[in-house]
Write a protein that binds this DNA or RNA. Structure first.
Lengths: 170, 170
DNA sequence: CGCGGCTGGTTCGAATTCGAACAATCCTAC
DNA sequence: GTAGGATTGTTCGAATTCGAACCAGCCGCG
């Protein structure tokens, strides 16, 4: 087997290193945020994200599906978390809509308060760990990269099946 | 409240967008990989990662702790997954060591085979979604960024407590 | 030697996630 | 209008993760 064969089946060492490091860094970031959020504010990162998205949204409310898309989890997970947040009084559910099957979730005043209480803590962490590392040029570059990745993922979602070599190598 | 106040408590809109997009992209990537790995090869991403790290390691074996560090999960999760992989015959556990409490995990031949079977499929996905988006300059830039993030996280781990404004804003 | 502190792994229970199955509603085409 | 197909949310069970508690073996210091 030649080198070309190797690289078609595996990744070139340096590229591989980038990918591995990417996975590690993202996981570590998640863990740090999660841990701090739990310890200091008693909420999950997912819950926090839900509060953030709601606070940013028009009328402080969103539909379940949009919420699920926005935080990138299964719908069932959103149902679960919204129930919890609702029990805590941080969000409210509304059926009010032209679409009778839709459910709106709205951030309550206590919810916003809770968010404003937690946000500085975790934003400072995000700054410290993530944002301070990048200057303006890099930010632009990263933004461009994220855009391309995002487009790739969109594209991939549009072709649900059978791309790539599949079970190649068997 | 002035604008400065706003930015000290929240993030500037564009920076905030970068961070949000980062979270979304990483989650979506994870999901795609996970799903494809499950559908086509019946293993989790974590399991796959374990196999990869073992294959890369000296003598195709690693200690539990190092494995946990490498894939960035709790030790208990590694125990759980290694048990499963061991039941499948893809890895083996060895007590052999000067350190009697240590456990070595070794990739078996079937394990390697299984990995070589799954790898092309998911590497092509990684290429398609992640790597093809970046040219050489960007790769270098990304690598630098990852390095800085990684260092930040290391640094942060070294100072376990009380950094950042904590419950500021109360 | 022998006592504390540390490290490596496992076990346990709780929390969260996912996907598949389901029920209700909307929409489009005929 | 009405049947068929897509979309919205929920419920359920299974899998996975985490952290805390725990045991065992290592190490340094008296």
């Amino acid at each position: 087997m030649g080198a070309g064969d190797f690289e078609s089946r595996w990744l070139a060492p340096d590229v591989n290193a980038v990918w591995t490091r990417f996975l590690q860094v993202t996981h570590r970031l998640e863990h740090q945020i999660d841990r701090r959020l739990q310890e200091r504010h008693g909420i999950t990162h997912t819950q926090y994200e839900i509060l953030v998205r709601l606070a940013d949204a028009e009328d402080r409310s969103m539909r379940m599906s949009d919420l699920a898309d926005s935080i990138v989890t299964a719908k069932s997970a959103v149902t679960y978390q919204v129930n919890k947040l609702s029990e805590l009084g941080l969000v409210e559910r509304f059926k009010c809509d032209k679409d009778n099957r839709g459910v709106w979730v709205k951030l309550t005043d206590p919810g916003l308060e809770r968010l404003e209480q937690a946000a500085p803590c975790i934003l400072s962490l995000v700054r410290e760990l993530f944002l301070d590392a990048i200057n303006c040029d890099q930010a632009a570059e990263l933004d461009k990269l994220l855009g391309t990745w995002s487009d790739n993922l969109d594209e991939h979602d549009r072709h649900p099946i059978g791309d790539g070599p599949g079970e190649a190598g068997a």
